[in-house]
Design a protein around this nucleic acid. Sequence first.
DNA 1: CCTCATTTGTCCGTATGTATT
DNA 2: CAATACATACGGACAAATGAG
Lengths: 232, 232
Amino acid sequence: MPIYRQIADVLEAEILESRDIGKPWSELALSSRFGVNRHTLRRAVDVLVSGGLVRRQRGVGIHVLPGAIDYKLSPATRFTMMIEDSGHSADTRILRKTVTCATDDIAQQLGLEAGDQMIAIEAVRSVDEQPFCVQSQFLPYAIVPYVAADYNEGSLHGFLADRGGIKLGRLGSMISTMLPDEGDAQLLRIDPSQPVLQVRSLNMDTATGRPVEYCVTRFRGDRLELRVQFPG
Amino acid sequence: MPIYRQIADVLEAEILESRDIGKPWSELALSSRFGVNRHTLRRAVDVLVSGGLVRRQRGVGIHVLPGAIDYKLSPATRFTMMIEDSGHSADTRILRKTVTCATDDIAQQLGLEAGDQMIAIEAVRSVDEQPFCVQSQFLPYAIVPYVAADYNEGSLHGFLADRGGIKLGRLGSMISTMLPDEGDAQLLRIDPSQPVLQVRSLNMDTATGRPVEYCVTRFRGDRLELRVQFPG
DNA sequence: CCTCATTTGTCCGTATGTATT
DNA sequence: CAATACATACGGACAAATGAG
């Protein structure tokens, strides 16, 4: 077995055993400890990064990620989330809120004409202080203009109910998986080699049947198991 | 942009444009062509490997993988599949069919006692000659012993209906994503860096309500989008 | 605001081992 | 056996980001 893999095994065992999230590690210190060249140690750390156990940060060091134990040993401890319940997280950080022309794709989803304006919201939701999902939401500006002005935190669905008396209903969702782009990986604090679970869904005003929200959510794959329940 | 990424972009563009699957590439030839050190070129090829575009083989070279075009250019060509419809594929290759003691996990799912026997089936389902998913199915031997003896191909659900008069119903599914282990990656003909979508589900005999099949399916993430439809 | 030490990111060079043809 | 090609490991050098002061 190559040296770099032996080192990776040792480090992985240490992480899983103690999960000591203290000061970040240093390549120089580790390479000295194992008596190998820095490049060899980097190769070992590459394995851990691919395994989602650690994260590198230039100028700082190598961070041991929390939750690593859960990921490797007990997928049963993942979060379980009903699809119907998504969008109700308490801890929400809104990154961007803009009003622009709808793209063809989204216009079609929302039943808009080309050139109609839409509200685009990008948000990160966290659980236990850890990023959990990135959400891109699109709403027709003409129907809910007050969202652009006044929605700033918490549940969008709750806001729509309080402010506009709109109750949203969901017909279905499309679920897929992919590797995250660099921006999402950074927001979710995962390595770009770790997959995300994407849920696309269209929400209607239950009163009028009009599409009001098109939502694309990317969840950390290592923290989520979606539960789909059928009637009966 | 670092050199290795520029090179990766050039090579990726070439692959997507012509997909010339001829002789495998050589690191030495490529590094000479781009005028960089071999290690720098290796770093560029790492990107392509992570992207599922090429495969390395020691002593041979770097192979361009077929199907790369579909993966990168047209996510729209993914299959869309209702969860309820899974398990009905026509082209099924059964890899293993064994009768053993149920593990604790599976015994609990199927409502068996520890030590009860179960049938374990491992199969690969293909669409258009391309591997589509790997399926692990577990059934209580006491209830459907004829499966161990006579089920050899096609839809298990159809076989159960024809042979035992059992109609299966599904209550729900658990959906998650992960990187495949080496065996699954090989069966699905994808690189281990490409995520799979896993659907776990428990199927009951609609007549008696007894669990009859516990099924774990790993789909190629790049070929599947699951559609979940809600009643209404 | 700037400086400085620390730390990771990138690139080069060289050598040796191992698998394939 | 020999040639080719990837895999691993060592070394040095500089750039870029970060945080302390």
